[in-house]
Amino acid sequence: MIVFVRFNSSHGFPVEVDSDTSIFQLKEVVAKRQGVPADQLRVIFAGKELRNDWTVQNCDLDQQSIVHIVQRPWRKGQEMNATGGDDPRNAAGGCEREPQSLTRVDLSSSVLPGDSVGLAVILHTDSRKDSPPAGSPAGRSIYNSFYVYCKGPCQRVQPGKLRVQCSTCRQATLTLTQGPSCWDDVLIPNRMSGECQSPHCPGTSAEFFFKCGAHPTSDKETSVALHLIATNSRNITCITCTDVRSPVLVFQCNSRHVICLDCFHLYCVTRLNDRQFVHDPQLGYSLPCVAGCPNSLIKELHHFRILGEEQYNRYQQYGAEECVLQMGGVLCPRPGCGAGLLPEPDQRKVTCEGGNGLGCGFAFCRECKEAYHEGECSAVFEASGTTTQAYRVDERAAEQARWEAASKETIKKTTKPCPRCHVPVEKNGGCMHMKCPQPQCRLEWCWNCGCEWNRVCMGDHWFDV
């Protein structure tokens, strides 16, 4: 396979590697080409510095992935760790964990309700045991953590790749202090920090972006993250068709209702045909949960890209028209025109101005929308079919299609509260000796007794199943 190397943020060049090629071997190839010592090179990928003893497969490097290699003399205490030698983080029983690669970060837990604080980093599902597709590297999971809308060759929703760059020099040479644990960490600028490894760059702020994971991409090709779309790892039924499908869209209502993408497309087109989208002054033209839940309008309007190009163009047109109407304007009634106009409040005669090729020149009556006339309008008909009709959803289907309910059931079956801080902690095999993952707590306690870890627990039921 081919990976592209950008040395000291210059133009990239291809390097041929195998899945079992080590990072140090990659350094040696680059060092020979650039005429520099291999031990002064640092390989940066997806916000993480890659260790010498890791392989291309370990690092989730795919065909035509772009890695950054910078030349920086080692500072005291760094060289041993980078070589894969006596790194205290690798000691058996050590409590410190390697910062998780962005290629394996899962933010789907952050669609849980606000009262489930902490689960994004504490609760991990076991539903990723799908067998890898044919042709994928051994052991590589097909679980997708992110979804994007690819405006490039795909023109559809695709699995996405999370990447990070330095907000100062805009190069992907920043190593994160810690990985993101929720969508806010990724979507809110300057929320996460790190250290830029580019020479002479003092940058410390992280800037995240997404790429389409279905095809090789260049540095400049980015895609918009659709953070309401998630892999259906909890096997929730769709609120409309009641099938279990994946991926799904999880509405931001209190129940976190789930809808499959085909039904979401149908829901949007139906509402669009009836012009029953909601115009929100802050958000724009949007839709609420299909069950009509309060405070559930979709905030990231790129989710409506699921409509496809033709329907999305209609959505944008109707949204612009609705904006004009909300501002007190009118639409030209001549067939084939429909231009938005903003006449004076007491102006009865409205002319669709033909300047700049935008208007048709038609003069019409503001009251009856017919060709302009003197005197009273002959008839004014009330528009028919403008009443909002509820999208029919079966109550039982709505009850079963809740992301929140599956989460709470998982928590109930696989977790116990920490005796000190009461945060839910998952036990997935292993011994009875637990350690609270909350940095402010870190209590060592017994899963069996529910009390602080002691010699009695150690001698009596340390390794009970």
Rank of each mutant, 00 (worst) to 15 (best):
I2K: 14
V5A: 07
N8H: 02
E16Y: 09
V17W: 00
S19Q: 13
D20C: 07
Q25G: 07
L26R: 00
A38P: 10
G47W: 01
K48I: 03
R51E: 11
T55S: 09
C59L: 05
H68C: 04
H68G: 00
G84L: 12
N90A: 08
G94H: 13
P99W: 10
R104T: 13
V105A: 15
L107Y: 14
L112H: 12
G118Y: 03
L119K: 15
A120Q: 13
I122T: 15
H124N: 14
H124P: 15
S127V: 11
R128G: 14
R140W: 11
S145W: 02
S145Q: 09
Y147C: 01
V148T: 04
Q158T: 14
P159W: 05
G160V: 00
G160F: 01
T177L: 07
T177D: 15
G179Q: 14
P180S: 00
D184I: 03
L187Q: 07
R191T: 08
C196V: 00
S198A: 10
C201Y: 01
G203S: 04
K211L: 12
H215R: 00
H215P: 02
S218D: 14
D219W: 06
K220F: 09
V224C: 09
L226R: 01
L228R: 06
I229W: 02
A230I: 07
T231V: 08
N232G: 01
S233E: 08
T242I: 06
V244P: 04
S246N: 11
S246E: 06
L249D: 00
L249M: 09
F251G: 01
Q252E: 13
I259C: 05
C263K: 00
V269A: 04
L272V: 02
H279M: 09
P281A: 09
P281F: 06
P281E: 10
L283H: 11
G284F: 03
S286H: 01
L287K: 01
C289N: 00
C289E: 00
V290M: 05
N295P: 00
L297I: 09
I298Y: 01
E300C: 07
H302L: 08
L307I: 13
E309A: 12
Y312P: 02
Y312C: 04
Q316Y: 08
V324G: 04
M327I: 08
L331D: 03
P333A: 03
P335T: 09
P335W: 12
P343S: 07
P345Q: 11
Q347W: 06
R348D: 05
V350W: 04
G355N: 14
N356K: 08
G357N: 14
L358V: 15
F364G: 03
H373F: 02
G375H: 04
G375E: 10
G375N: 12
F381G: 05
E382W: 09
T387S: 13
R392N: 09
E399V: 10
Q400V: 15
A401N: 03
K408C: 08
I411Q: 13
K412G: 10
T415P: 09
P417K: 12
R420L: 14
R420F: 15
V423M: 15
E426R: 07
N428I: 14
M434I: 12
K435R: 06
R442Q: 05
W447A: 07
N448M: 04
C451R: 15
V465E: 15
